[in-house]
Amino acid sequence: MSQQVQGVIARAKGEPVRVETIVVPDPGPGEAVVKVQACGVCHTDLHYREGGINDEFPFLLGHEAAGVVESVGEGVTEVAPGDFVILNWRAVCGQCRACRRGRPWYCFATHNAKQRMTLLDGTELSPALGIGAFAEKTLVAAGQCTKVDPAASPAAAGLLGCGVMAGLGAAINTGAVGRGDSVAVIGCGGVGGAAIAGSRLAGAGRIIAVDIDDRKLELARGLGATHTVNSRQADAVEAIRELTDGFGADVVIDAVGRPETYRQAFYARDLAGTVVLVGVPTPEMQLELPLLDVFGRGGALKSSWYGDCLPSRDFPLLIDLYRQGRLDLDAFVTETIPLDGVEQAFARMHGGDVLRSVVVF
């Protein structure tokens, strides 16, 4: 029997979001209904509201979430009612060419629930990243549920569902940061901060945080940065080189995703170093680099999709590290807010005052 719950809806481009009643159907084959306990407010949700992803309004926003499985549909074996799970937006298919080659973190055919949640009048909703978790309950594909230790704080655990995993994975998975490596992270919001935390976790020797906001640089120190650079006051490339004996960093992570910051990352890396792009560009952005420099500097230029994570592998491991006190996920939770506080959280996001606002039910 379908259920009626409250959820945050974006009805049109640029309009303030509002809490409305939505209808959640019973799970069909391969699906699960999850009672959401916490959901982070991510920049991607704001992009949806602004029409920056697509124009399939109305959207049910929210995707960085953790909660408890309430019910499952036919054929579901991955999770069962009562399991504490983190939701992910890359449920791997197991059949595409990436999965068959043993690289499921690149799965090219990830899937979502087949049924749609709706408004009371039957209007179908587009769930953000196939999740839609600014809601008391949500319907997802069972493969989007990753079971983890239920002792973890839902507010902290849910952040692995997107931004924090993207940053941690950009350092550990994509950048392959190793013991003693030098790392520079450009942009120290939630994703960049997580890249710093991931670099520390991987044993990096020197971790350089770059931002234009001293408040974010101070937070970066708390997450593991050994040095900070305010790029309003100093040339970021020169500063990174000075801090790495004139060579540049082994790995430079661009957590902003602009042509200007990518060029900084490119020239701030050591010869044969690695650049990782994890910040998301907008469609109109263009990049120009001298091709001879691309050739002559060697190394690798990589893009990081969701931190190149495999949720079934990475989420339980990271939650275990969190429970052991080795990964401070709580540090990313700046504030907890009610469901009707999402619009105000978007405004604070613009002001740079928070790493993450988290809706707690």
Rank of each mutant, 00 (worst) to 15 (best):
V5S: 04
I9K: 06
P16W: 01
E20P: 13
T21F: 09
I22N: 04
I22G: 02
V36Y: 14
G40F: 09
C42T: 08
T44D: 01
D45E: 00
L46K: 13
H47N: 14
Y48C: 03
I53Q: 05
N54D: 02
G67T: 03
G67Y: 10
V68L: 05
V69R: 10
E70K: 08
S71G: 01
V72W: 12
G73K: 03
G75I: 01
C96W: 05
Y106P: 13
F108S: 13
F108L: 15
K114G: 05
R116L: 01
M117F: 15
T123P: 00
L129H: 07
A142W: 10
Q144P: 05
Q144S: 01
C145D: 02
A155R: 13
A155G: 08
G158P: 09
L160S: 12
G167W: 08
A171E: 00
G175T: 00
V183I: 09
V183C: 12
V185N: 02
G187R: 07
A195L: 08
S199C: 10
R200Y: 00
G203Q: 05
G205M: 07
R206A: 09
D211A: 00
I212R: 08
A234G: 09
R241S: 08
E242R: 09
L243C: 02
D245P: 06
F247V: 12
F247C: 13
A249Y: 01
Y267K: 02
A272R: 14
L277W: 04
V280D: 00
V280P: 10
T282F: 14
P283C: 03
R297F: 09
G298R: 10
G299V: 11
A300M: 13
L301F: 15
W305P: 07
L317P: 05
L317E: 00
L318T: 02
T334Q: 15
F346W: 11
M349P: 15
H350L: 12
D353C: 10
V360C: 14
